[in-house]
């Protein structure tokens, strides 16, 4: 029997927004240590979980301001941009990418001269093709969410429909600007089309990983990283690739990627997430 395609590939923007809303739903800090304790597991297991929780709390604090300030517009704005893409035969739908906030907090790392899409057989070797720190120079302390990462990394979108206009708030609050991704004048701003493609590519990687198809997940993540080395969801793609590498038994590659994430975002929830993939967990702060 042929495998069904995930609904995410074929539903409308509203349904997609609903489906995506669950991806970053996470238990409260402290829940995992409680479970470890109830299982009679050692203090070290609980300590590492508590550390992750604390880091996650710290990460989410910074992102709170970002989410507050940018909540309006991002999710449905993005979803609508996808609609505008998929319904491009409806001329009344217009998607206009807005300029990014000019504040630059982190200098952009130079892009590698060339990035090729790796073949499946060399996927694990491709880790070294783009230094993780260079890829992950966006949204420092961005906490856990792709949503948050998107909030600081994606262009604001004004989507116009026949009877509705979505307007995201501008100018950005200072807190948002402090987290904002670097505005590189030489870099082409992402379009609604490219964002939708980025999201789809990463969704495919995640779905493959969730379904136990690690090789496929790895290929999708590599495709993403090769195509959008400074994409809106780069860090998410690296984390998916880390998980895929672990599933494929490539611990060295996974550790290299994980350490890149940790070096780029020490103490953040991203760092905690990749750290917790290893047993024993990697230190989630740079050494």
């Amino acid at each position: 029997m042929s495998e069904l395609k995930p609904l995410l590939d074929g539903c409308d923007d509203f349904e997609r927004a609903l489906l995506r809303s669950t991806q970053r739903d996470a238990p409260p800090a402290g829940a995992l240590p409680k479970t470890l304790a109830s299982l009679g597991l050692g203090a070290s297991a609980i300590t590492s979980a508590t550390g992750a929780g604390a880091a996650s709390a710290a990460g989410s604090f910074g992102i709170g301001a970002v989410v507050k300030a940018l909540a309006v517009g991002v999710l449905v704005g993005t979803a609508l941009s996808a609609v505008a893409v998929t319904l491009s035969d409806e001329p009344q739908n217009v998607v206009v990418p807005m300029p990014r906030a000019p504040a630059a907090v982190v200098a952009p790392a130079p892009l590698p001269p060339a990035v090729a899409v790796p073949a499946a057989s060399e996927a694990s070797e491709s880790v070294a093709m783009v230094p993780a720190a260079a890829k992950l120079n966006r949204a420092p302390n961005a906490g856990d969410g792709t949503r948050a990462a998107r909030a600081v990394a994606e262009p604001e979108i004004v989507a116009q429909a026949p009877n509705s206009v979505f307007v995201s708030p501008t100018p950005l609050a200072p807190a948002v600007a402090a987290f904002a991704a670097v505005s590189d004048p030489a870099r082409e701003l992402p379009t609604a089309t490219s964002i939708a493609e980025e999201v789809k590519t990463l969704d495919r990687a995640r779905h493959a990983l969730g379904a136990g198809r690690a090789r496929e997940a790895m290929n999708e993540a590599n495709t993403y990283l090769a195509r959008w080395p400074n994409g809106s969801l780069t860090i998410e793609a690296v984390i998916v690739r880390t998980e895929a590498e672990l599933a494929l038994g490539d611990r060295a590659g996974a550790e290299r990627d994980a350490r890149g994430v940790i070096a780029a975002h020490p103490g953040s929830r991203y760092a905690s997430r990749v750290s917790a993939l290893f047993s024993p967990p990697l230190p989630s702060k740079s050494e």
Partner: peptide
């Protein structure tokens, strides 16, 4: 205001 992720989750 627009649909926030948390609101979307509640709706979902």
């Amino acid at each position: 205001a627009l649909l926030e992720e948390k609101q979307a989750r509640v709706l979902f």
